[in-house]
């Protein structure tokens, strides 16, 4: 029993410590971000890495999600004669929920892992110390560009995912089930309001910032050589994904209620 309480306590202390350090790193990042000039070249490079290079996977995921969603909704809703609202269901789910969350999870797995591995390797090979000796603040040089890139590019990629997902739904509903194309688009536009889209994008922006700060944190404080880098990478993906899934509920509760 005491062992159990001990373990629980230790986990709780470990978790609070980690959360505290992440918040401190976030504050340091925001402070550096507010002091010009910014590392524009690095920021653009990271935008390319996080946004453009994630596009192929996001497109494939979004189109198949839209398709399977339409397939399931159509066959399910047919039971009570509501198959005409498939367009609405796909559009609302993609913009409010699936677009931002799926994009977030993909970027966490791709770019988040890459950030943690790169910064982790730089830490264990003393490249981060070298930056400091060359009078360069590593938070400013390494983390601020990734933070901005995450915050800007995740909503951008989410817009693409939203559109592709809706097109996926169209392909199945119209192409496979021979529903009228006019009905699909009409149902899509009838009930979709601007706040569905921009609240979804606010979520994406939050996810992008979370992935960047968590992955950078894991990489930045890596210790213990190659094994440490491996652990940091896994940790970054797990913690980013968990943060996305958990915060998604609270953000949705706040934005969409």
């Amino acid at each position: 029993m005491i062992k159990l309480i001990e373990t629980l306590g230790r986990t709780l202390i470990g978790f609070s410590g980690e959360l505290g350090r992440i918040v401190l790193l976030l504050l340091a990042t925001v402070r550096q971000a507010l002091m010009p000039p910014l590392e524009l070249r690095n920021t653009f490079y990271q935008m390319l890495e996080i946004g453009v290079r994630s596009l192929p996977v996001v497109v494939v995921t979004a189109i198949f999600t839209g398709m399977v969603f339409a397939l399931q909704t159509y066959t399910g809703f047919k039971r009570f004669g509501a198959e005409s609202v498939v367009g609405t269901v796909v559009a609302l789910s993609m913009t409010r929920e699936l677009g931002p969350v799926l994009t977030g999870l993909i970027v966490a797995g791709r770019a988040g892992a890459a950030m943690a591995a790169e910064l982790g390797t730089m830490r264990v090979t003393e490249q981060i110390d070298a930056l400091e000796t060359l009078a360069t603040n590593p938070v400013r040089y390494l983390i601020v560009p990734r933070f901005f890139a995450g915050m800007i590019m995740l909503p951008a990629v989410t817009i693409v995912a939203d559109i592709i997902g809706i097109i996926g739904g169209y392909i199945v509903t119209v192409g496979l089930f021979k529903t009228s194309s006019v009905v699909y688009w009409k149902r899509t536009w009838d009930f979709l309001v601007a706040s569905d889209i921009y609240n979804g994008l606010i979520k994406a922006c939050f996810f992008g910032a979370s992935i960047a700060i968590i992955s950078c944190y894991k990489g930045f404080y890596t210790s213990g050589g190659a094994e440490g880098v491996g652990k940091a990478t896994t940790g970054a993906v797990v913690l980013s994904s968990m943060t996305i899934l958990i915060s998604d509920y609270f953000l949705s509760n706040w934005l969409f209620r």
Partner: peptide, 15 residues
């Protein structure tokens, strides 16, 4: 730190 130059054990070149 601008007064300093440091050579690291494994050189720590930015790869």
């Amino acid at each position: 730190r601008k007064k300093f130059g440091m050579l690291f054990q494994m050189a720590a070149l930015f790869d």
